[in-house]
Design a protein around this nucleic acid. Structure first.
Lengths: 244, 244
DNA sequence: TTCGGAAATCGTGTATACATTTTATTGAAA
DNA sequence: TTTCAATAAAATGTATACACGATTTCCGAA
């Protein structure tokens, strides 16, 4: 039982339904009928509709033409495209930050994040503090989204990152025993460093293309999961939402 | 009774509120209180909330932390950034269409649109069929969004275009007597031709940068309106939503 | 005067009954 | 058998009453 202590029924229902969709319990194309679902969730139709509407804003549901909601269907192509799109948008955030100049506090925070990320790699070859890396990585990307000072750009970057498989943390490999994965973390960290440096040096085009390539690290990990070790797929929570 | 014959009260209210927001009648930051607004619109709170939720999906309203909705505020910086973002996203659509290959029917439709757009320019120097140009231009951009075959990309391109000032038709100048405007139409049309050619030739990078530059035509027109003839601003409907 | 807190007010959250539309079913005629 | 229309059912649309929470107001005490 999830001890879900949100203020309102609608907010709690958003969390419950989101969890069921992301986990694959509610599969793409499933229509959500108000009456049976509200009975199952033990709330009335009013907060349920509110919750479904918010999940539509979030991109997890779609409205049907003549009323009603369905769970949005995501294919593996969508995953690839969403990652590409994150790269494009983060690249734009990076380029604009470089061209227009980044806020000094944010830029220096980004630079110290790079140092802290360095510290996640231990002396021994295959020790990495994943939990810490993951947290810092999330903050790095969040700052990148804000760094250009454009609300419009930040908003759209954060929007695409809300899709579970397009999030910067979606394919962070948590198994340092796989050589390819450990190396990809090191490559990604070098990209973090280069992105921060390019922005600081006002090198817009370089910053943009670095950020794009950085997103492709996620795609590379995805490809590895799918091609090299298909059995891994079921262990990647981000992919539970994807239709087969 | 309003001439607005939508099926449901909610749908009609979406249209009414959208119109009031876009026209500047409801200014950014205005909070929409449910009880008085529902009385004014002569509907109950239920369809009103539904309508406001849909307008939030559309990006015209925002949800407040403790409930309620406000009209989203747009600054002139937001207009510039949204145009830039449209360029980035249309550029991505163009690049992917080139790299992955465009559907033949769509590509040939795009090519014939280029021809039809040519025909909008009359023999005489300053005659242009604006209405037809505007329609064809809208279809060109709609096809561009779809041309990569990626639903994710198409969806996000169309999303940013939904902001009234970021639409490809937002700053189509309708006065051929102003030399700078007439020339900008001709430049834009040459860009249409080049974009279609680059996609057909599978030149991804060229297609991307052409589409970006094409969006900057809108920005150039915007700058002209603001700097050269400030008095024009009130005549541009797309800018009514922008705060002063 | 200033601060704290109780009470009133304002506004959204929720449940529910009923209306309307959409979709499915059924049966008769071609 | 197929098709169409009438009808039943299912599902969403809408109104409304009441609950709850947040905010503001106002009064009394320090």
């Amino acid at each position: 039982m999830s001890e879900n202590t949100a203020a309102t029924h609608a907010a709690r229902t958003v969390i419950e339904l989101r969890e069921k969709i992301i986990s694959g319990q509610l599969t793409g194309g499933t229509r959500l009928f108000e009456v049976p679902l509200s009975e199952e969730l033990q709330i009335s139709r009013t907060p349920l509709r509110d919750a479904m509407s918010r999940l539509t804003e979030e991109g997890l549901l779609e409205r049907l033409k003549n009323g009603g909601f369905v769970v949005r269907t995501f294919t593996m192509d969508d995953v690839v495209d969403a990652i590409e799109l994150r790269g494009v948008l983060e690249g734009t955030a990076a380029r604009l930050a470089a061209e227009r100049g980044a806020a000094p506090e944010l830029l220096s925070r980004m630079e110290s994040l790079v140092s802290e990320l360095d510290d996640c790699f231990g002396e021994a070859h295959n020790t990495v503090d994943f939990e810490r890396y993951s947290e810092l990585n999330a903050e790095f990307h969040q700052i990148l989204a804000s760094l250009s000072g454009s609300d419009i750009v930040r908003r759209e970057v954060e929007r695409v990152c809300r899709l579970p498989f397009a999030s910067p943390s979606a394919f962070l490999p948590d198994r340092s025993d796989i050589v390819a994965f450990r190396r990809s973390l090191q490559v990604a960290q070098e990209q973090h460093r280069a992105i921060a440096a390019a922005i600081a040096a006002r090198e817009g085009s370089r910053a943009e293309h670095l950020a794009r390539e950085h997103a492709r690290t996620a795609r590379r990990n995805l490809d590895y999961v799918l091609r090299q070790e298909a059995s891994l797929r079921d262990q990647v929570p981000s992919l539970a939402i994807v239709s087969n």
